[in-house]
Design a protein around this nucleic acid. Structure first.
Length: 289
DNA sequence: ACCCAGGGTCGTC
DNA sequence: GACGACCCTGGG
């Protein structure tokens, strides 16, 4: 494959660090020059901010511009979204000021499902390591500038892995979840294509919850960070629980805060943009911790 | 050396 | 609906 380049001129709401380190993705790594290189689909891409422009370089299976528009959701107006959210209260204003360049990516649904199953009760460095090892073992090799990269395995490719194989890649107790979920998707007990066509977020969520290793938090992350692209969800993890308690609820023991209370509060304050609000808050508070 | 927490879920009571 | 168990790794 031939290297391609695309330059996005005078970009707003696009900061590589914010996008790749806000916790939505696990396959992007910072280079010495502060740019980021990552793999998605059959593409290897480098993203570099040069003054006001964003420069995309890499090997792609289709036209690089089209691929970037889709993956980085470039047609969505983040200025408008941030405007709306900033007016809600001072906390949202501050968090958006902090992570002003965040964009929610359109990540492959299958990869997002497995990635967030792995994320359960886990930390980001280890999650990244597991996903890399899975890709190297069951994905396909690509070479760019003399370096090797691996696609994330398809359902069929990953189905070659036994529970023991997965355990040996360091997945821990999640080996069973990955194995069972792969089997279910392979046997078409859940149809990922059809899932995109369902409009009702609740119904999609119910379908995801049928898969092994997917509970409410992981389901919401999949809904928000994949091509399903639902903003009317509010993934509640330890950090979000912490920030919501610190800012609004002020319970002495944050672990005792009722989940339902947080959900109601989020819906009430942030409305149908609650998913994006969650991401600004998460990036803000986790970084300052 | 030891303990703890990490983008939670599952099985059991 | 609450509770503990769960694999593994890095940091205090």
């Amino acid at each position: 494959m031939q290297e391609q380049k695309y330059i996005l001129k005078n970009a707003t709401s696009f900061e590589p660090k914010h996008i790749f380190e806000c916790g939505q993705c696990f396959r992007w790594n910072e280079e010495a020059d502060k740019s980021y290189t990552g793999v998605f689909g059959k593409n290897v891409l480098n993203v570099k901010k040069e003054e006001k422009d964003i420069v995309f370089t890499g090997i792609c299976e289709k036209d690089i511009k089209q691929i970037c528009i889709e993956y980085f959701d470039l047609n969505r107006n983040y200025e408008e979204i941030k405007d709306t959210l900033s007016k809600i209260d001072k906390y949202l204003y501050d968090s958006i000021n902090y992570g002003e360049g965040i964009r929610i990516l359109n990540q492959d649904l299958w990869e997002t499902i497995i990635s967030f199953i792995i994320s359960a009760n886990n930390n980001i460095p280890r999650i990244k390591g597991i996903i890399e090892r899975i890709s190297k073992a069951y994905g396909n090799k690509m070479v760019w500038k003399g370096k090797e990269y691996y696609t994330f395995p398809t359902v069929e490719e990953l189905s070659k892995a036994s529970k023991e194989d997965l355990r040996n890649l360091g997945t821990g107790f999640r080996d069973r979840y990955i194995f069972e979920t792969t089997q279910k998707v392979l046997n078409n007990e859940i149809n990922l294509e059809l899932l995109h066509k369902e409009e009702d977020t609740k119904k999609v969520r119910e379908e995801l919850l049928k898969l092994s290793g997917i509970g409410p938090k992981v389901a919401d992350c999949i809904l928000l960070f994949s091509t399903l692209k639902r903003f009317d969800v509010f993934p509640i993890d330890v950090w979000v629980r912490r920030v919501m308690n610190d800012l609004y609820i002020k319970n002495e023991d944050e672990t005792k805060v009722n989940k339902k209370q947080i959900e109601t509060l989020a819906k009430q304050k942030y409305g149908n943009l609650e998913g994006i609000a969650q991401q600004y808050l998460f990036y803000w508070k986790r970084d300052l911790a």
